[in-house]
Design a protein around this nucleic acid. Structure first.
Lengths: 114, 114
DNA sequence: CATACTTACTTCGAAAATCAAAGCGGCATG
DNA sequence: CATGCCGCTTTGATTTTCGAAGTAAGTATG
């Protein structure tokens, strides 16, 4: 007797496609922290590099590109002189902040310091 | 006039220590997705490996160890026979789920499919 | 008993991601 | 005009992840 098809017991739903998509971004080193840093307000490259202890310039640069491409942050160039660049959260990026805040709170309660 | 010390304008608060701690775990490939999969209920290694499309056995094994060590999931061995192993969220792990749900919802609204 | 299949991993070599350090062009300051 | 800041990029080493195969133990089939 044929069942409604489209899934066997085995293949059945276990991982959430949306979560998987989210973690294709967030599951990369520093993505989450970069977003959290920008939550405080817009910042320049050097400022972020100094603020986020441990990230290398090359990776920071890559993350900023990825997150910009994904529409979570925006890069703005103010043609000075001197020319300045600043990164800030877009609406999409800001929409993620409640979740990050919750993660932060969770870590305070459930992850040991250092 | 000496200020309260402990921070210059430059070094000043930008990245959240708790968030950084959280993403030392979550900012690794597959961590978030593994947790999300376990949200549905306990599962064995093979079941997870099948459910989470794209993860390799070696990485899954490593993530499960890390997350177990961090106290987010628990590994239980039922000495059969046949012996079976199952992984499930601890209370700490469950406490993170609201945040993951929010991320998933965010992705549904802000990240394109595929 | 032999063969095949399942679970729960581990091991291995290759490919990809990350790191730290140095370099570059532009602009400002002493 | 040397020195320093900014916003990156490049380079080469180290670490992570991948994908496939292997291991050990138990179950099922003939």
């Amino acid at each position: 007797m044929a069942t409604i098809s489209s899934h066997d017991a085995d293949t059945c739903r276990r991982s959430d496609a949306a979560l998987t998509r989210a973690f294709r971004l967030l599951g990369k080193r520093w993505s989450g922290v970069v977003l959290g840093s920008l939550n405080v307000g817009p910042a320049g490259f050097r400022e972020l590099s100094r603020a986020i202890e441990g990230v290398s310039d090359s990776v920071l640069s890559e993350r900023l590109s990825e997150l910009t491409k994904a529409g979570l942050i925006a890069r703005t160039v103010d043609a000075g002189p001197p020319v300045t660049v600043s990164y800030e959260l877009t609406e999409s990026g800001r929409a993620l902040m409640p979740a990050l805040d919750q993660i932060s709170e969770w870590a305070r309660e459930h992850l040991p310091q250092e």
